[in-house]
Design a binder for these strands. Structure first.
Lengths: 304, 304
DNA sequence: TATGATAATCGGAAATACCAATTAAAAACG
DNA sequence: CGTTTTTAATTGGTATTTCCGATTATCATA
């Protein structure tokens, strides 16, 4: 049997893939350019295949090379995890944990979550990152993040998930409008173009429209906001109505406003909140404990 | 950041864990005993923890050591998989595939299966292994096998599964007895102690009893057989009745006998057939293709 | 045509991996 | 009870590997 590739060479390959440049990749690995260059050649020899196509100045990863990079990433991160696990004497709730959260969830959980985790697992180093679902999934794949807190349903590609709980949507209107709309909401009683939503980059827009059975698009205003807090301000200024998730209301987003929240049309007008991770992770147990902590903070906890 | 452990040292650790002896482990790795010894010490130093307790003659793996072994196994096998994948130029249906099958499934699928796989994937090297569910699960965990074909429901521990299809149970009796029993079967019409089953090591016994709603244990004969073929022979000799899975009948297990098969009591008197694999595998795509091939051979294919 | 950037190559130095032989300690045996 | 066998650790020396700095070759571009 031929010799296994060395982790060192695999990490050279990853650095090269990330930097797309031998010098920078070498610097990244704290080795000389010549070392990295021969490391890659060495690897190609051992694997008996071409990983990069060289055209005498620059280079390109081959299709096979890209696939090897994917696999190498898993191996390197599993090795890092082993190292970290051993050095922590088997304590799984120790060291860095990189958690990505979408903007329509983050502000309403990170306060409580980081406080609780700090108390229960003082050696855990929570590193939060707020971004859109698509960017987060990309960064999870890259190994830049460990787990994601997302709203579902959603195409999570090759990843795995746990559904932690449910977060109902509420229609938020100025209190002087509440009477005319009724409860559950009759959208027909709202003026045309009076419902404001977030930019389409935010998955909440789609989730809210689907969950609340808001099919009549004439009711929607073409202006889109970039944050829930903006939407609330607009509603408070009597520009119209909007949807707000229950968890935001629980954390007081409507305080100091003249807004009221109404139950929207639709039996279960809600989004699911889930934790997403790579299927190849070796930290399921750690993630599970994080899942339990987050689930306790949700309006409806459905983690089994 | 401290240096990653080398794959070489991790493989020394695995060999030591398997052999529980430095000399044999060293031989296994084709290195001298001193090399392996210092390799392990090296690893302990790098990981900054004690992996084995030495008592001046023998040694014992520490709890942490055992856990590190588990993780190391995943890393080594992922690396082997990467190597193999690269050397096969990305062809996932190439090289050895170690498949474990329980004895109440194996004889009825391996013929067709290996023929079909041979045709479709001539470079695939199928290595079959027949054993009980418990032993197979143990060997899967050890990395000795890649995937298992089992009957479900079953505690598959930390592993993952695909349900491939359903396999109905039939009550098999001598044709002269068929009239008196009726269809669907009325167990009360059978003499006491007239139902023969397999040894309790075979999961089929439990599955058949549960699925066919055979609660009245007085009907069962305390003698237990070691194979379905024995059971059939006993039924043919008019010693009693027995349960046989549809897939066995489809493959002609009742040919050249005077037996008939009857539909047992119970709406869906059947077992599920599933493929089980380690959650940390990197060969899902390969396994999926195997799953499709197997599913086509089952009485009821439910693979989505 | 010169300049700068890039990746590959080469030769020597440093680090390491490895082995054979030896030691130390305990277990098995007579 | 002493001898032999088995086991893992240690030691010292050798072979191998890894790594770097310097150099070369190639191309882009100024």
């Amino acid at each position: 049997m031929s010799k296994l590739p060395s982790l060192k060479n695999l990490s050279y390959l990853l650095a090269l893939h990330q930097e797309q440049n031998f010098n920078r990749a070498a610097a990244e690995c704290n080795v000389s350019q010549s070392t990295l260059s021969s490391g890659i050649q060495n690897l190609e020899e051992q694997l008996d295949c071409q990983l990069i196509e060289r055209d005498h100045k620059s280079f390109l990863f081959t299709a096979l090379g890209e696939e090897i990079v994917e696999k190498a990433r898993d191996i390197i991160s599993a090795s890092e995890e082993l190292l970290h696990y051993a050095q922590g004497q088997g304590n799984i709730m120790e060291g860095p944990l990189r958690l990505g959260i979408i903007p329509t969830i983050a502000p309403f959980v990170i306060g409580e979550l980081s406080k609780n985790l700090q108390n229960k697992f003082p050696k855990l180093l929570l590193q939060l990152s707020e971004d859109t679902t698509q960017n987060l999934l990309h960064r999870l794949r890259n190994g830049e993040l460990d787990i994601l807190l997302l709203a579902l349903p959603m195409d999570i590609q090759g990843n795995q998930k746990w559904i932690l709980g449910r977060d109902p949507f509420k229609l938020v209107v100025h209190k002087e409008l509440a009477e005319t709309v009724g409860e559950p909401v009759d959208y027909d009683k709202l003026p045309d173009r009076s419902i404001f939503l977030l930019e389409k980059e935010h998955c909440m827009t789609g989730h809210a429209v689907a969950a609340c059975q808001l099919t009549d698009s004439i009711k929607m205003n073409p202006f889109t906001a970039t944050s829930l807090h903006s939407l609330v301000q607009m509603a408070d200024a009597r520009l119209g109505a909007t949807f707000v998730p229950q968890m935001a209301i629980d954390r007081g987003i409507l305080e100091n406003t003249d807004l009221v929240s109404l139950k929207p049309t639709g039996q279960e007008a809600s989004r699911d909140i889930g934790l997403v991770y790579r299927p190849t992770t070796s930290r399921r147990q750690t993630f599970r404990k994080i899942a339990e902590e987050i689930a306790r903070l949700l309006p409806v906890n459905t983690l089994n």
